[in-house]
Design a binder for these strands. Structure first.
Lengths: 337, 337
DNA sequence: CTGAAAGCGCTAACAT
DNA sequence: ATGTTAGCGCTTTCAG
């Protein structure tokens, strides 16, 4: 039979409540009894039953992550799992566990509803990819401790955290201008792609800071695919004067951009500098390896965990925050000073 | 205040045990009472408290995954997270939850020890990347429900599941011979890389089945890196007669192989066929896109979940099994018939 | 500083 | 078919 607190209490000649206090480092316990009880616990190989603890305490020390996990998600969106890893690590260090639950945008709200009602976890993290209006309403109405990983693309009172894409954009601009580029182009996603839009915004700001204007005919927006990156680059290359560097909003677009430059016989970086965002998945595969603004999404996950634990303590607190975890990684696709 | 079973019982004019039986679909409950109680539950918006359930039942309906999750794991090893997704999906469909815990090979055993003693989960899945002798001993000694994802590279009595790399190897060989290739080479990882070794074994078998022998000078083994793939391909190309196709044990090696062929002025697939294993991460990026034996690791995760649930029911059952979830994806790196 | 005792909300014999 | 009741193992007042 499993050894319980009663067994320890009996063997140590104290009451169960004393054992409980020892387990929980209660201040009122004397050094001697604490030591004695600890010795007995070790001797009997006692470990408190986690289920009983969470029942008695009314908390699970557990956080649920709701995210889309359709087939190939790990391949198509490794960033998400890197955020998860950061989240888990920091939660673990603070005594919490992360439970994973795959779902989609339509059923996420129902799942959250049940989890909240059943009190099976202490808080919920929601990947922005499955956010919806009903879920947003549920979270704000119940005030259940939560955080959304990524800024919702609609107006919402939920707590969220996202990386500061605007800042990353201005970092890219600052880097390129520092390398002497003066005539920069941007190809990216459309208005509903908030990440791309913010990066573009930051690029404009960064360039403005250097007294440079991003010409309208040097901004191309389309789909975030290799194919559309190729197409946009083609169109861009028909403009005169040619830019001296192209900033791609993400890896997929960059991949098409590189293809297009090769097909046009333009050398990187001699004829054209290339820079993009995120160090994955392709930036190190293409020839030449790409200079990027790397975004440490794991750090963002870690930050999300910290915020979430704060929110658990203060459930009515609202946080909506950008974190900056980016840095430039200089490679061969831009000319070095 | 939260609504409990007592409230439901009172409002429905029945006892708590009846409510409990309704909640659990006990056979002894009449249709009428079941309906009435359900109605009350809905009206009061009652959901059973998960913590109390798991305390009273003595089970958590939860599985723990122990895996290495150091920074960049999601980028370097997306396969692992795809397995996780498959595991989670199937567990969820059967009423179980997956909790994630990052750890490393040295601390994994202690973590497992504590989890088992505290009974905080019903079973453990362990990624083979963090397996160790002590952990193996712990799992076999305690007979705690577990499954190792991947075959341990040492002799062990633990339960494990792995994909059938030997079979995948023979599939590759069968495909290449069917396309008319007759003089095939293999470049892969060294003996301790079990995946590569098994693939090679399968390739030999498959070729033998077609009456072809894999010549010793056409087998090169090294590190699983782009650089070593490049090196091995270079050495291979000094052999005469040249092979008509090269099988690469994985994407990293294939990447270097493609580089080397390009540098030697050999066209793919006109001068040399290329084939590799796994559809990620690079097989679709390189020019031309690579024909591969795709291994559906998500299906393996799903299979692992099913086995684990069996093992929970029969804790003394031992399973050590290979699953075959692979298929050939024909692309442009091999000549088509 | 320590102990007694009342729960936490549900499950599962057992009785009716 | 339904109800009674004794736990599950720990936490947490409240007395002492």
């Amino acid at each position: 039979m499993r050894v319980t607190m009663r067994d320890v209490a009996k063997a140590a000649g104290v009451s169960v409540s004393t054992v409980s206090k020892v387990v929980n480092d209660h201040y009122s316990i004397s050094r001697e009894t604490a030591q004695r009880v600890h010795a007995v616990m070790r001797e009997l190989n006692y470990y408190p039953n986690a289920r009983a603890q969470s029942f008695a305490r009314g908390t699970t020390k557990t956080v649920l992550l709701l995210a889309g996990m359709a087939p190939n998600t790990a391949f198509n969106n490794p960033h998400m799992f890197e955020i998860v890893a950061g989240l888990e690590e920091t939660l673990r260090k603070r005594g919490y566990r992360l439970v994973l639950q795959g779902t989609d945008a339509t059923s996420a709200c129902g799942v959250a509803q049940e989890v909240i009602s059943r009190q099976s976890v202490d808080a919920i993290a929601v990947h922005v990819g499955i956010m919806s209006h009903p879920l947003s309403a549920l979270l704000t109405k119940t005030q259940f401790p939560h955080i959304v990983l990524g800024m919702p693309n609609f107006d919402s009172q939920v707590c969220w955290i996202d990386n500061n894409n605007t800042y990353s954009g201005s970092m890219a601009a600052a880097y390129l201008t520092a390398q002497g580029y003066r005539n920069i182009a941007f190809i990216g996603g459309q208005y509903y792609d908030l990440g791309s839009t913010h990066r573009l915004e930051g690029v404009k700001q960064g360039l403005a800071g250097a007294g440079i204007r991003l010409a309208e005919q040097h901004i191309w927006l389309g789909e975030s695919t290799r194919a559309d990156g190729y197409r946009m680059t083609g169109e861009l290359l028909e403009q005169r004067p040619l830019p001296d560097a192209i900033l791609c909003a993400n890896n997929y677009i960059a991949l098409g951009c590189v293809d297009a430059l090769r097909d046009h016989g333009l050398r990187i970086p001699q004829d054209m500098g290339i820079m993009t965002f995120d160090d994955y998945p392709f930036s190190r595969i293409v020839e030449p390896q790409l200079t990027v603004v790397d975004i440490n999404v794991r750090a963002m996950g870690s930050q999300a965990a910290k915020l979430l634990l704060d929110i658990i303590r203060h459930p009515n607190m609202q946080v909506q925050t950008y974190v900056t975890t980016s840095s430039v990684i200089e490679r061969q696709s831009t000319r070095q000073k």
